[in-house]
């Protein structure tokens, strides 16, 4: 059952690589945006909130097409980045970008919820003890939000592994370059003999997704215990 062909291993490995980098790249902006949405009081907050959630409600093919328009070889951003040696189009880095954008709402949501669960009075108390704002953020806010950040990162990872529509639209389905697990499954289903391989890869996808969801739920429980069950 688990004797994957080299092509299948390549797709699994590439998927894991793409998902890993998608999480890593979206964590810093994810924390920043979540903090802005949880604590910021500025005009345009609702607009930012909407913009972040856009990939959740747009058809993935639309997101992929917009990425192609912006970051494609002829796109305005794509041209600019090509000059400094960064290409997204038809490259695995493009899959990272597509997955990161599609998973971003989930990441931001998880972090934002954990930030909103933190009592600002604790941060005030830290300030009264002499901690400057950056230290309050590093020693109080971040540790208390950590389980939420981890839960968000795992959800983001699982979503990135499963992303199909935006990825295939933006960077196509090139074996060994941009063919991730879902694209490989899709390719197998296009040929008459592909049912077996497709099913095997489907089981891999299901296993990874279940693992991620359980891990995420366990971490979410911990955040509730840590932030909610502490000081009166």
């Amino acid at each position: 059952m688990l004797d994957f062909t080299p092509e299948e291993w390549t797709a699994i490995r590439l998927s894991l690589k793409v998902a890993f980098w998608a999480v890593l790249a979206s964590l810093p902006p994810g924390i920043l945006v979540a903090w802005l949405l949880a604590r910021g009081r500025f005009p345009g907050r609702i607009l930012l909130d909407g913009l972040v959630h856009l990939p959740l409600v747009l058809p993935p093919v639309v997101t992929g097409y917009l990425l192609l328009l912006l970051f494609g070889r002829q796109g305005p951003l794509g041209k600019m980045l090509a000059e400094v040696g960064i290409t997204f189009a038809f490259n695995w880095t493009g899959a990272v970008l597509a997955c990161a954008i599609m998973a971003f709402p989930l990441l931001v949501r998880a972090i934002r919820l954990s930030l909103e669960a933190i009592d600002p009075k604790l941060e005030q108390a830290a300030g009264s003890l002499g901690a400057p704002p950056w230290a309050v953020f590093a020693t109080i806010t971040m540790p208390l939000a950590l389980p939420g950040i981890l839960a968000g990162a795992i959800l983001c990872f699982a979503k990135a592994l499963g992303e199909f529509g935006a990825t295939i639209t933006f960077v196509s389905n090139i074996p060994g370059v941009t063919q991730t697990l879902p694209s490989a499954i899709y390719s197998h289903l296009q040929v008459p003999s592909g049912d077996g391989p497709a099913l095997r890869l489907t089981l891999v996808s299901v296993a990874i997704a279940i693992f991620a969801l359980i891990a995420s739920e366990l971490l979410a429980r911990q955040v509730r215990r840590r932030v909610g069950g502490g000081d009166a």
Binding site: D119, L122, S128, A131, P133, V227, G230, A232
Partner: peptide, 20 residues
């Protein structure tokens, strides 16, 4: 002066200990 520069201790109604 910002609160963290004042060196003024504050004991609140609720203790506000850091739970972690």
């Amino acid at each position: 002066q910002a609160p963290h520069q004042r060196r003024i201790g504050y004991v609140f109604q609720e203790a506000r200990l850091f739970p972690h």
